[in-house]
Amino acid sequence: MVRMGELATSSTEGDVLVSIGLGSCIGLALIDVRRPIVGLAHVMLPTTTTEEGPEAKFADRGVPNLIARVKKLGAIRLEAVMVGGAQMFSFGGDGPSASIGPRNEAAVREELTKAGIPIKAAATGGRRGRTIRVHVEGTRVTVREVAGTEQELYGRTS
C-alpha cells in the first residue's frame, strides 16, 4: 500500500504495489523494460514548499526519488505509467488550487521528460477518483474507478 506522499519499489514476484483513491494526486509507476522491477509514487502536490513530510509528496522531488530507488534495485531502462490528476471539485475559484490535479500531472510529466523516461500509458484528468495497482509479476499496471472494473494499462506479453 502506497499512501499519500509515499513511495515503494519491488522486484519480488507476487508483490502488488497499490495506491487507493487517487483524486487530484498522481500515482506514478516506473517499470524496468527488461526485468521485473517496479516502483510506485503517490504524489500529492507539484512543487516543494516544505522540507517536512514523506519523500514523494511533491512531484519535483518525488519523481527523482522514485527513479533513484528503482535504480538501486537494478533497474536500467525505465518506462512510466501515470494515473490520477483528476479535478474533483470546481471550487477554489480561480486560484491555483482549483487546478491542482492538472498541475500535478504537468509537474510529473516535466520531471519524466527531464529524466528521459517515456510515458507508455496514462489514465489522467477528468473528475473521477482512481486506484492504481502495479504487479511485479508480468510487470502489469491496472487502474480502476469507483464501482468500475480493473482495466489493464500496461503489461509485458511474455
Binding site: 499519500m4 487507493i20 483513491g21 487517487l22 483524486g23 487530484s24 494526486c25 500529492m44 502536490l45 483528476a86 474533483m88 471539485f89 470546481s90 471550487f91 477554489g92 488550487s97 482549483a98 491542482i100 490535479g101 500535478n104 473528475r127 473521477r128 477518483g129 482512481r130 486506484t131 469507483v146
Partner: peptide, 17 residues
C-alpha cells in the same frame, strides 16, 4: 459541491486542493 467517488479520493483531494 456534491461528488460520489472513493472516500479516499474525496478526502485526499480536499486536503490537496
Amino acid at each position: 459541491e456534491t461528488v460520489a467517488d472513493m472516500a479516499g479520493a474525496i478526502v485526499a483531494s480536499v486536503l490537496a486542493t
